[in-house]
Structure formats: structure tokens, C-alpha cells
Computed example of a mutant assay.
Amino acid sequence: MALQIYISGKYYDKENAKISVYDHGLLYGDGVFEGMRSYSGKVFRLEEHLDRLWDSAKAIWLQIPISKQEMGTVVNKTLEINGIRDGYIRLIVTRGAGSLGLDPNRTSDPQVICITDHIALYPPEFYEKGLEIITASTIRNHSAALSPRIKSLNYLNNIMAKIEGLQAGCVEALMLNAKGEVAECTGDNIFLVKKGKLMTPSLDSGILDGITRGAVLDIAREAGIEVAEMALTKHDVYIADEVFLTGSAAEIIPVVKVDSRPIGDGTVGPITLKLTKRFHQITRE
């Protein structure tokens, strides 16, 4: 059976899943989304993802037309219909169809879309041997302009940095904020380890409040690892003993070289391995 896509109360074959070309989600990136993981038929931290979706929508004055409970049901039903137990979920809410102008008051019928599929963001060897990344010249959106904590459909800022990485032969790139501090990568949060201490940029560094980021912080604290959410510089990255990235799609992936500089001894570090092992345990319990 063809993959079934949920769109505002109905299911469509993947090839027939369509919305209006006048939808402001398409015309202006006006909408919000979440990317989630399902393990053994259970969505990892579903409530946290839905809370973040509603927060993003509230921040852009977008009224989601169904309740959180109904949205959770949609997610689980779409997984079930497609027979997916270990997979990826993309949940989207658009502003709806309107005019060719910007005015959101002229839009109607916000679209709720749920896509469930399988995803392999990086090949297995990158998880085993680690990534090489560069620092992009494209900076993260200034938090006073559009908060990076809003997971909006407009990802052009991240895409431009992604292109820089790809042109340099890297699948991921590090982004700085307007102060020149480390923010996050194009699709992942970043963590450093130095002398046994785990560090990651704080939310006021202009980053997305990652769900997997939060899970890793919880795991580290439970394991007795010292944790700090703080302002970090490229220098901190270069001299780190270990670096890894986190995200719903990526999970936890090590980084062994940044801007041609080896991280630590250039191999995946012990704390990264420990946190990854525990993350795999809790997601599959």
C-alpha cells in the first residue's frame, strides 16, 4: 500500500497528498513544524514535541485548529496506518490558503499535515567514525528578529549554511550567533566535552530548544556528569576533548574534526559513546 499522508482530517496516498499553491506555508514559509522519532511504536517525548509546536504557533499568532490530544492521536494513527514502528514523523501546521499578499488575516483553513516515514540522516560509518564539519559564514538568525526557538517552515537561514558545508565536502556546518558565539549546526544542537565536563550553548545563545538536546542533558546529569549550558566560542570547540551533535533525526552523532582541526585524538570519545549507549537504551525501553 502507498504511504498514507494525513492532511486536515483525511488520508491521501503520497502521490496525491497536496495543499493549495496559495497556502502561505508555501508562499512565505508561514507555519511551524516538528520532527519526531518513533521507537518500537512509541513516539519519543511526544508531549514535549507537541508543547514546542504549540509554543511556536503561539509565537507567530497561528491558531492550530485541533487540540494537542487530537494531534497526538493523529501522529499515532498515521504511524499505525503506515505500519511504521521505528520511523520518523514530520508534523506541519501551515497558515492556510490566502492571497498573494503577506496579510495573514486574508488566509483561512490552516492545514495540519502528518507524514510518517523512515529516515537515515547520516550513513552508519559517520556514527562509527564521526563527522568532519566546518564553521559557516552564514550566522544564525538574530534572536531579536525571529527567535530561533520558533521551529518555523522558513529554514532558508539554515539551508544557506548547509550549502556552505556541502560545498566544503561536509554534511553539516556549525553556525555562530550575531555575537560570534557558537549557536548550533544547521539541523542539530552541539555539545562539547572538556576534562569530563559536558558543555552546550545556552538557549539565550540563539538556538532551538532541542528535544534530544534536553534528553542528553537529563542522561548526563543522571550519570553524574557535570553539565553547563553556557556561551561558547570556536576556540572552545577547537580545544574540546570531544564534540557531538544531537537532533531527532540525527539522534547523537560524533564530530571528530572541525575546520580541519582534529577534536581530541580524532576519534569518538568515551563520554560520547556512554551517552549514546544510554540514549539508545531509553529510546528503546
Rank of each mutant, 00 (worst) to 15 (best):
V43Q: 04
V74N: 08
L62M: 07
S99H: 02
V75S: 01
A97H: 10
H118F: 02
I113S: 08
H49E: 15
Y22E: 08
D30C: 11
Y88E: 10
N82H: 02
P104N: 10
P104M: 12
G31K: 07
F126Y: 13
Y28H: 09
I5Q: 01
D109V: 02
G72C: 05
V32E: 14
P104V: 14
I7V: 13
G9A: 05
Q69N: 12
I60W: 07
Q111R: 13
W61C: 10
G96I: 11
T116V: 15
L26K: 04
L79Y: 01
Y12I: 06
R52D: 00
L27Q: 14
G35R: 11
K42D: 03
K18A: 13
A59K: 13
I115M: 14
V112I: 15
W54K: 07
G72A: 07
Y11Q: 03
G29W: 01
E15P: 02
D117H: 08
Q111Y: 04
R106P: 00
K42T: 07
D30K: 08
S40V: 11
T107K: 00
G41E: 05
E70H: 00
G72Y: 07
S20Y: 11
P124Y: 05
Q4E: 13
G101M: 14
L46A: 13
K10N: 14
E47N: 11
E34A: 02
Q4S: 14
C114D: 08
K58C: 03
L62Y: 02
V43R: 02
G41A: 05
A17Q: 06
I7Q: 11
K10M: 11
Q63M: 03
R95D: 08
Y28S: 00
G72T: 00
Y22P: 00
D55G: 01
R37S: 15
I5C: 01
L100M: 15
V43G: 06
Q111D: 07
G9H: 07
K68C: 03
